[in-house]
Design a protein around this nucleic acid. Structure first.
Lengths: 197, 197, 197, 197
DNA sequence: CATGAATGAGCATTCATTCAT
DNA sequence: GATGAATGAATGCTCATTCAT
């Protein structure tokens, strides 16, 4: 039965990959179920064996990609022992930007679909099932840094980073990411300073 | 004939208002022409007497609202003679936030549809047909302030402000606008400082 | 009131001319009432002051043009005294072909809409209100020619002439009218011979 | 899978038959897709599984019926060895008239839709993929008959036959087919004589 | 399990016709 | 009389979803 399970997993993954690409390129309502199944080399009806409807596949996609992104961001820091909190943040930011440059579809999808509510529900399995913010909180504690209004700070940073990556990487607006990157680092630093107590 | 013209204007306005509300609540592709006309108490066909298709009404809406918003923001400053550049910006920001608090639909619509390209095309009739950025540029000049990478700065500020207003006013995420407002002022100030030469 | 009557006639004529051109070029169901009124420089609603609906204008058109065609064909013969019946027919045929070459729209319209029933109802005001076939019958009598199955003969001749004119003049199929014309004369002659007793 | 294919064929045939009847009775633009599917006891959407749009079903219909008609006409001749060319033509003509008497809808459809261009593209699979005119040409050759302006001759004959069948069979105008038939034979004979060299 | 044929609700758009001005 | 704004029925076509095979 493990074989069967594996096969089912493969099918589901194929559908999710197809949907991912199509959603990022054409948007949800412009992507048809037929589009998705065709790209995955399956029949239309098969879709409904794996997902209740179109919105279910979208939700699963968001969850899955978000976990991956945040986990990789965490690993990006590497050996943190000789780094300040701000340096850790810079490393994470650099890692994210690089990732997004390599994989613009991912960026498009994340930016379009990742909601604040969702972020807070993400739990990184490889990190004691903690949420991204708990992980950052632990890091800050280890570095002896304290913030007021942590949530607001994270929110601002995330919004600023995601919107600037989106426009500069995907559309080179208002400038290429090479130009935007140093300014973005600085803005993030300033926002963090603003909230540091 | 003035009567007829007036009536037509009323009809068109009714359609635009209906479309505005529906677009902000359900999005463009989820809003049907029938929805719009029903809400405006008209027959489906009437829509096509005033607009070529759905995208035309959207474009007219964006243009019309953007001009209004930016013009009002400009007037918000009032007598600038005794104010610094930063103080002017704070006044504009406060005015905008107040406006958005009063009119959340407007906020929703602006945030969803106002693109960077569009902003640069907006010309304020009451201000020598200048664009918002030209107006701010003039102001900065009068105040003797200079920036590097002005465009990027404006972009970052606008994105930060619009996204924070959107989430805090409409969804109280990550906090209510009362909490976010002072922090937003400060972030904007810091961003402007970062780019001041 | 004669003035008013005249004006009404002019309007009606303008509508009929526009409709005629549009029907011949685009067909009945592809021509909209708006098309017709626009071409006649009138408002949509005005159409309904002169015609009950689209089919009424078509019927009036057919009648009017058919009468004109047949009357002119009759006049084409000129002084018949020294001509045989066949020579008269040849003259009529030549006149018709020339007329159709000059005015292809007329040809298109006639061929599409002139029914056998209609032909038999046509009465030429300038010829004692006789039908075309009565006129030809009189001519045959004067020339001392007799036919069996006159109706069938006329029908065959008319169909052959109209279809060949249509295709050769309008589409040069299967050949140009220059090539077809002599053969058409001969076929008509042969058909008449076939029915001559 | 043969079952499925068979069913699909049945469905497609049902659609084509419905469309055929409706097109002949109401014309192309007066027939809606809903009409067609209703008559075939299917849902509207099903139509689009089998045909791209309305014009595609019309094209398929014309092609299919034309090939059938011409092939049967060819077979009508039977053993030609003791027949003259004219006698062969008479047999074909008789076969066609009989066929049209039995199947007036077919006649209506053919007459309305079969264009000269199309006839020349018809290739009879059972006769070395030759066109109807090539087949007749071969026959004439075998019989030692020669024509000038063959195309024009065929065109005239076809037009005369189809229009006379149409009106006499479908509307008994100008007379019943029983009356018209012998005259039609004779006219065809005369036309062929006219072009024989 | 997988398929894809079938369904029918839903949409954008057109246009004949009416009617208030 | 003339206008053209308003109507809403009708049409071609799409697509999410179901279900028999």
């Amino acid at each position: 039965m493990g074989r069967v399970e594996e096969k089912k997993k493969l099918k589901k993954d194929a559908l999710m990959n197809s949907a991912f690409l199509l959603f990022t390129q054409k948007g949800l309502s412009e992507t048809t179920v037929l589009d998705i199944t065709k790209k995955a080399n399956m029949a239309k009806g098969t879709f409904y064996l794996y997902f209740k409807d179109k919105s279910e596949i979208r939700d699963e996609l968001i969850k899955s990609y978000s976990v991956a992104i945040f986990n990789e961001a965490r690993l990006e820091i590497g050996d943190e022992t000789k780094l300040t909190f701000q340096e850790c943040i810079h490393k994470i930011l650099d890692g994210l930007i690089n990732k997004f440059i390599e994989n613009p579809d991912l960026l498009r999808f994340i930016d379009k679909n990742l909601s604040w509510g969702l972020i807070q529900e993400i739990r990184i399995a490889d990190a004691d099932n903690k949420t991204p913010f708990e992980i950052l909180g632990d890091l800050a504690e280890r570095k002896g840094v304290k913030f007021r209004d942590e949530n607001l700070m994270y929110y601002m940073v995330i919004e600023m980073v995601s919107t600037m990556c989106h426009s500069s990487i995907l559309d080179k607006i208002p400038a290429d990411i090479c130009v935007v990157r140093p300014e973005l680092h600085q803005v993030v630093e300033r926002i963090i300073n603003q909230f540091t107590t």
